[in-house]
Design a protein around this nucleic acid. Sequence first.
RNA 1: CGGGAGGUAGUUCAGCCCGGUAGAAUACGUGGUUUGGGACCACGGGGUCGCAGGUUCGAAUCCUGUCCUCCCGACCA
Length: 493
Amino acid sequence: MSKEITSRAEDYSQWYNDLVIKGSLADYSAVRGCMVIKPYGFTLWENMRDQLDRMFKETGHQNAYFPLFVPKNFLEKEEGHAEGFAKECAVVTHYRLKSDPSAKGKLIVDPEARLEEELIIRPTSEAIIWNTYKDWIQSYRDLPILVNQWANVVRWEMRTRLFLRTAEFLWQEGHTAHATKEEAVEETKKMLEVYATFAEEYMAMPVIRGLKTDSEKFAGAEDTYCIEALMQDGKALQSGTSHFLGQNFAKAFDVKFLTKENQQEYVWATSWGASTRLIGALVMTHSDDDGLVLPPKIAPLQVVIVPISSKDTAAQQKINDKARELVKELKASNISVKFDNDDTNRPGWKFAEYEMKGVPVRIALGARDLENNVAEVVRRDTKEKRSVSLDGLSNYIITLLGDIQQAMFNKAKTYRDEHITRVDSWSDFEKTLDEKGGFISAHWDGTAETEEAIKEKTKATIRCIPLNAELEDGKCILTGKPSKQRVLFARAY
RNA sequence: CGGGAGGUAGUUCAGCCCGGUAGAAUACGUGGUUUGGGACCACGGGGUCGCAGGUUCGAAUCCUGUCCUCCCGACCA
């Protein structure tokens, strides 16, 4: 049947695509490398977005909006930034089309409408924003600036993948400006912690907080902090980043402020972002071969009630009444719930459908249940079925949703922890990578050459230098040179 | 940009080798019977076979070109 989902073990990529497409999250679009996010998937994104937005506001940030187009010369100003993004920019060169004189009904680019200066469709907004901040900042009294933007960006990737790497994607990008280095560093770490908290408490996805190596950090940053998650095929996924930009952008865009002491100084900056990629992370962290498994705190639909219809109209009436009463009670507790009494689909069809969509809790109500004063409650994460008394059912469901949230996190964390392997020899390093996957905790001599050599040999990269790692003398896994602490390697998306 | 697979009904695909009236399943519509894990019966609607050329009496099928999609690489804040 077309609704079947490819087994995870057989073909992980196909399994992932099936989950996204058949779970109604998104589809490939007619536009190269872009996707259409469907209403169900977008509601999931809205739930994630709203929670993140609340957390940004709690930490003192405000939203703003900057232009989609970045004049090319803005992008050129910060050298590292320019080099990092040059290869993947969509460029607007013309502003008009005209009828093709040699083909009826066709349009061609009007050669006379070439722009004097090309506009780049933002791959990220540092350039346009810092060009604006220059006008906003004169004095220490103007600082800090704590601004976030929810927007779409475009990066012309060679190969795309639903949610994980699309040519256009939705994200938020925070851009802050500070008077001191200390304050900017603190901001960078604070926002990393916001992402980590969101991932763990809302997405039920354990993450490792860490620092990127020089070769993996953001183009234009001094330091890039990140959260790294582990997917079920043993590959790592960068799920959010927070950059300490130093004074690089302030210098590039000449953003100075006057201190209390009447001194001109360059502003210190941070930027941080998380994208719709988080949806891909969510899917690959929790789902199984029957479809999506979504954590209750962000699921578009938390509870579905499926009636088991009966010919007996009196019994049917009772079922409907009980279901509506339940809906009312759950809604009063801010639970999103749907009573699916569409009689064009049978119960079995609905069971499969909602499983595929990852709805955390399903309640089945039939005449037989009502006679016994119970309902059948099934949780999506474990598929456990339980007959639960109708008395106090809504309270039971509310507790159950919390239990599912916690159980999903615990399960993912157990899997993740089991896939962090301490390795001290090169042969074990290669063997672990090929046979087990996951993160490898190993010593590294701290050089970009060694990092590159390991990547060349194994396709594994240093995902991060964990923030809480204890110092430990050791020898680099490849070169044997001395090392002070372990770093995490993995193959990654 | 390299390697592989593919583009035919809303969807998944068969037909192509060996040219001859466009097929199946599913979905959709109507009517009926059903309803505790993807129901069944009957009837019905739906496709310029990715696009453009060529060969041929005749092309979904053969040839050439082109566009697009997916998978694997390269690339990837």
